[in-house]
Design a protein around this nucleic acid. Structure first.
Lengths: 121, 121
DNA sequence: CCTCTGGATAGACGTTCGTCGATATGGTGA
DNA sequence: TCACCATATCGACGAACGTCTATCCAGAGG
């Protein structure tokens, strides 16, 4: 289950894109998160997990939604896990995933367009 | 300058990821936008444009920020353009780019984590 | 112990992506 | 008209990605 701890990417933080130019490092960290979101299957997985009752879903629930092999789903879950967007926990035979809402809201905050700077002089 | 009109991807709309599972089509459209944001150079370009005075920047301003060839920058601007995130306008010798804030805020809204559904029964 | 089932890992394969140098295009000004 | 500058497009090449099949690992239950 490798890394479940939200990595440093999650620290790429807070100030909206439009406030000031991103540093190269901030951009690299943010890009990792957006890359994790850049696949339709992963977006649906995230959405399925987040909207599932109890805020969690087991892999068996997720696999049957798609026309894809179980290893492929497992691969996408790993990408989401390693980006810090979700965490997985084994309980008995099954593994349950849940979303890391702080990471989502941080991303959301980055995208909100601040006041567009206008030349007054 | 190909397509400047915000494409249908921009219509993949509105309801947060966590509210209900995305449809396959919504996921495909959203993924295109996140893919455009999934490169550090494009994130910095977007940020540079959005935070530049007047809310616009010409390519010449952008090229000199990076250690990359001019065609590479031009390529990234094209990706951002075709995803509907920015628009470009030629004025004299120079081409000026500006951000499409509605698309950004729509993405931001998708990411905001709604109330996590909890089993009460 | 063995077997079954849920899930992860490994390796292969075709496709897409980011970058480059070379070149085309479009506008400016002598 | 011609030379020059700012951008865009083209074609190539290696790296990264998404998918598959085959296989491995971990619990559960006989």
């Amino acid at each position: 289950m490798s890394k479940q701890i939200p990595l440093s990417a999650a620290d790429a933080c807070c100030s909206p894109l439009a406030r000031a130019p991103l540093t190269a490092e901030q951009a690299v960290d943010l890009a990792k998160l957006f890359k994790a979101l850049s696949d339709p299957v992963r977006l649906r997985l995230l959405s399925l997990i987040a909207s599932h009752e109890g805020g969690e879903a087991c892999v068996c629930d997720l696999v049957e939604v798609f026309d894809l092999s179980q290893p492929t789903i497992s691969h996408h879950l790993k990408v989401l896990r390693e980006s810090g967007l979700i965490t997985g926990e084994r309980r008995g035979t099954w593994v349950y995933y849940r979303v890391h809402p702080e990471v989502l809201s941080r991303l959301s905050a980055v995208l909100v367009p601040g006041e567009t700077p206008v030349v007054t002089a």
